[in-house]
Design a protein around this nucleic acid. Structure first.
Lengths: 255, 255
DNA sequence: ATAGCCAACTGGTCAGACCAGTTTGTGGAT
DNA sequence: ATCCACAAACTGGTCTGACCAGTTGGCTAT
């Protein structure tokens, strides 16, 4: 109905963004002061501030008290690295564990279904992925790991499950790839993880559905606990801001 | 360069975002009015507006003149109506059961977590939703049913779970006759479903996590089996999308 | 020349007012 | 009794002017 209408503040933010992106303002350059913009554009300073906050939320500029606003170093990438979700992870590390909590369920289900439904072709692909996993040095990269899990998920023959888990995994890869790399270097952990992979592989191939679910869930939970352990040791899993929260009641006890 | 300082408006936007993440505000839900937030948080309305603009720029919320601000759907993969996933439903009713298969897991997990983590406020909301569910004639509409499940999912305090399940639910609404609409007309089934709801409600409220998971999963599985039964009798389960219920008018649209 | 201070920037916050859409409930007309 | 219209009472949108709080640079006093 009313989609046409766009507030002045929106229009201002668009004009500023276009000005910046068109090269009128280069990255690092200082944006005119709020009062200047207000008089020059013929609007109140409040509007300018709202528009600037919008750009700030988009990551186009950053603002410093007493100094001014500056054009951020933005790579006009079409990647969704700047998606709202990414910001959520950056600001709220708990979300990572929420993610793993859900993954624990779905990976377990995937393994269970895979054990039940895997075809000959599936088994072949899973075996190939597992062998690649064994032969590759986990230190180099996590792709074999990715491939192994992927093969199992696909063997579940549930496209919804594949889709959802793929989405969750992408989220993780984009935000915590460093931490995954942090996990493997420790010899003891690496050995444990490889043992878990072996258990998953064997259970799925043997068609032991319940067992497959169990070990797959244990695997995710292990990763989860390990990350938490790393974090408690001061490792930088993801950026951690510290803020108190008395705005809304907190859940009784998390984790 | 003391980077530590963060303005009130930043903190407000952070807290609001956190509130949304915690499931206190689910996608599509209305954010409290600016004046309410201002008084509740003890800051001026200008600050609230700046914080909201920041979230808006980030795509977390969208705002409509005269109506309010609403939480946007921030998990794109499972909510995108144009997703290739939607095309799967076209000719493959089986996908519906894949969906329910996944839902079985996640609803179970949601109930389990809700039983563990529900706050006083959560319990109040769940109780209210359950009472509405009891009093309403299920034949009229499915809103109370949705509200009840939604309340439980939100009480899990896992934003990822909330968003994923919300996406799956939307998918179902878009493609399937609401299960209750199909199932309830039969007196025996309706009674069974209401009994299951009661079990879920009691288990969650009693904090019996394992039991809550069990009955919630059984509920989804029952719906699943029932639909399959109906379908085998020749009933039309899958339908063409006709809902335009979604109002994602994206204000960040250029031009 | 330099240490120190102060004025003039900058953004941050507040208060209250008014405009502009939306929703809702109540009234009257039917 | 039903239904339509219109007036509150919401909601967000904008403006004004004031004051607080960091930063910067220049000007004094040493």
């Amino acid at each position: 109905m009313q989609v046409k209408t766009m507030g002045i503040s929106q229009e201002i933010s668009f004009r500023l963004e276009r000005l910046i992106l068109d090269g009128g303002l280069a990255p690092g350059q200082k944006v005119p002061s709020e009062r200047q913009l207000a008089t020059r554009l013929g609007v109140s300073r409040a509007i300018i501030r709202e528009a600037l906050h919008e750009l700030q939320g988009r990551g186009v500029i950053n603002t410093q008290h007493g100094r001014g606003s500056f054009v951020a170093n933005i790579v006009p990438s079409t990647n969704d690295d700047n998606s709202p979700l990414m910001h959520l992870f950056a600001g709220h590390p708990r979300t990572l564990y929420d993610l793993l909590e859900v993954r624990e369920q779905l990976e377990g289900q995937a393994a269970e279904l895979a054990a039940q439904r895997a075809t000959h072709g599936d088994r072949h692909r899973i075996t190939k992925a597992y062998q690649a996993l064994e032969e590759t040095d986990p230190l180099s990269n996590a792709r074999p790991d990715h491939g192994f899990h992927q093969a199992i998920v696909e063997a579940s023959h549930n496209p919804i499950l594949v889709h959802v888990l793929n989405g969750l995994k992408n989220m993780m890869l984009l935000t915590v790839h460093a931490s995954v790399a942090n996990l493997n270097p420790r010899a003891d952990m690496r050995e444990l993880i490889m043992k878990q992979h072996k258990q998953i592989y064997q259970a799925v191939m043997a068609g032991k559905a319940a067992s497959a679910r169990k070990v797959a869930m244990a695997h995710v939970r292990f990763v989860q606990d390990s990350l938490r352990g790393l974090e408690s040791q001061g490792a930088e899993v993801i950026r951690v801001p510290l803020y108190s929260d008395n705005f809304h009641e907190n859940p009784t006890k998390r984790y």
